[in-house]
């Protein structure tokens, strides 16, 4: 296929323009900016604002998916494809259900979405080689704390949606604040592991590598990757952090006593004032 001569310069210009745009899109910084902006707008659209707008939710969902895709594309590649896929899956579950937790109108659904977030977070912890914490998150949070939330909801939530569940205070300002915070955090995280920074520090890395080669005992496999992970974690917890464990036990006991004291004194005060008690 041959092109007319008059068209070819136009096409060339077009191609360079497209290449420029492609370069811009290739910059992780720009990807991050697009992701943060899309996430902020989608949060603002999704947060409950009293009046029901049927068009806002689908647009918000679409923008949120764009933001997720940009975040996923801007993430660093991991070692193997399987690891990458698993990480993307669990992190996606965690982030999507965290968003659903804060935008859903019914508090009961919020609690259930939070349980889903916990499942995603524990998956992320498992990928990060923290088996004990992954399981403990499910057991402690989803098993105990979340059930406590549902109990309180059962005591205090009338059926149907209350007026304060249908509106949120200052969704736009909060979305902007969130965008600023996540933008700053991603910039500093990106700078931490930027390829350019690594290249700049190559001499340092080389000297470090030489030192490591000189002292082979220093590069033993990290404790967390061994088979007896939990035993080693327990050894560290009850060895080096024994005093902190005792302090945490005291804290739990004081919280228990304090919670019971507040309940009983509140009941007594309510009786004295003639208010109904539960």
């Amino acid at each position: 296929m041959t092109l007319p001569v008059s068209l070819s310069p136009l096409l060339a210009v077009n191609a360079t323009l497209l290449a420029d745009v492609g370069q811009v899109a290739a910059q992780p910084r720009w990807l991050m900016a697009i992701a943060v902006a899309a996430a902020a707008v989608s949060l603002w659209l999704l947060l409950p604002k009293g009046l029901e707008n049927r068009r806002a939710r689908p647009i918000g969902v679409v923008l949120g998916s764009i933001a997720l895709a940009c975040f996923a594309l801007a993430g660093r590649r991991l070692g193997s494809l399987g690891e990458e896929a698993v990480f993307l899956l669990v992190a996606g579950v965690a982030v999507v259900s965290a968003t659903a937790t804060i935008v859903t109108r019914s508090p009961v659904y919020a609690a259930i979405w939070f349980a889903m977030t916990l499942a995603g977070v524990s998956g992320v912890l498992l990928v990060l080689d923290a088996q004990f914490l992954g399981v403990a998150t499910i057991v402690v949070y989803a098993g105990a704390i979340l059930v406590m939330f549902l109990f309180v909801l059962m005591l205090a939530q009338p059926s149907g949606l209350a007026s304060y569940d249908r509106v949120s205070s200052e969704p736009m300002l909060a979305a902007i604040a969130g965008a600023v915070l996540v933008g700053l955090l991603t910039v500093s995280i990106g700078r931490l592991s930027a390829p350019a920074a690594l290249e700049g520090d190559q001499s340092v890395a080389q000297t470090e590598a030489e030192e490591a080669a000189a002292a082979p005992t220093a590069v033993a496999a990290p404790d967390q990757l061994r088979d007896d992970h939990v035993a080693r974690l327990g050894g560290e917890l009850f060895g080096r952090h024994l005093v902190a464990v005792e302090a945490a036990g005291v804290l739990l006991f004081v919280a228990l006593v304090g919670a019971i004291a507040v309940v009983t004194r509140g009941e007594a005060a309510a009786l004295a004032e003639g208010r109904p008690t539960r």
Binding site: G75, V95, V124, L153, E170, L181, V182, L185, S193
Partner: peptide, 29 residues
Amino acid sequence: GMLHNGLLVGAILFTLGLVGILTRRNMIV
């Protein structure tokens, strides 16, 4: 890369929680 991605997920979760605290009015949420 794993550090970068983990920190990114942590930052996003933290920010979502912050937005939730700032906007929602139900004390339990």
